[in-house]
Lab assay of single mutants.
Amino acid sequence: GPIITTQVTIPKDLAGSIIGKGGQRIKQIRHESGASIKIDEPLEGSEDRIITITGTQDQIQNAQYLLQNSVKQY
């Protein structure tokens, strides 16, 4: 399918649970989903961080599912 980009906003407090120790968790999510995932640095004074996910519809759905699971375990 076509490559698309979607953005998800997360509270910055949850960023740690998604990134994992030394970036292990986010690497695993990238690997498992096949999507490209970029977590922006939090904006000055903002409570949120923006996650940019790029890939096919399937890859993005996979990545979103894995991201949600990471947050739930936290």
Rank of each mutant, 00 (worst) to 15 (best):
G23Q: 06
T52F: 15
G20T: 13
K21S: 13
E44G: 07
I39S: 09
T54D: 09
Q57P: 06
I10M: 09
P11K: 05
N62L: 09
K38V: 11
G45Q: 13
Y65Q: 14
T56P: 02
A15M: 14
R25P: 14
E32D: 08
E44C: 06
D48E: 11
Y65N: 15
L66W: 11
I50R: 06
L43G: 09
K72I: 01
Q61I: 03
R30G: 11
S33T: 11
I37S: 00
G34Q: 08
I18A: 13
K12A: 10
I51K: 00
G55I: 00
G16K: 09
I50F: 11
N69Q: 08
Q73D: 13
G55K: 00
Y74E: 15
I39G: 02
Q73R: 10
V8I: 07
R30Y: 14
E47H: 04
Q7T: 12
P42L: 08
P11H: 02
Q57T: 08
T54A: 11
I4A: 02
Q64V: 02
I3E: 09
V71L: 10
L67V: 10
A63H: 00
Q57N: 12
G34Y: 01
G22M: 14
L14P: 14
Q59M: 02
Q7F: 02
D48Q: 10
I50Q: 14
L67W: 03
I10Y: 13
S46I: 06
I53G: 00
Q7V: 03
K27D: 15
G45I: 04
Q64R: 11
K27V: 10
T52I: 13
T9G: 09
G1F: 02
V8L: 04
I50K: 07
Y65H: 15
P11W: 01
T54C: 06
I10C: 04
R25H: 02
P11I: 04
H31W: 08
D13V: 05
I3L: 08
Q7C: 02
I29Y: 04
I29M: 15
Q73K: 09
Q24S: 11
L43E: 11
Q64M: 02
L66C: 07
A63L: 01
Q68K: 08
I51D: 01
D58A: 09
Y65V: 12
Q73L: 06
K12M: 07
G1Q: 01
I39R: 01
N69E: 13
S36N: 02
A35N: 00
I26K: 04
T5Q: 03
Q64Y: 02
S70Y: 05
A15C: 02
I4P: 04
K27H: 08
I37D: 00
I29A: 03
L67F: 09
L14C: 11
E44H: 14
Q59N: 14
T9R: 05
I39Y: 08
T6D: 06
A63I: 02
H31P: 01
Q73E: 12
I51G: 03
E32V: 02
L14Q: 12
G55C: 00
G55M: 00
P2E: 15
N62W: 05
P42Y: 05
D58C: 09
T54F: 02
K21C: 05
Q24V: 10
T54E: 14
Q61C: 09
G23D: 14
L66G: 04
P42W: 05
G55Y: 00
I3Q: 04
T52E: 14
I60G: 01
D58S: 09
S36D: 08
E47Q: 05
S33V: 03
I19K: 05
T54W: 04
Q24D: 15
P42H: 15
G34T: 02
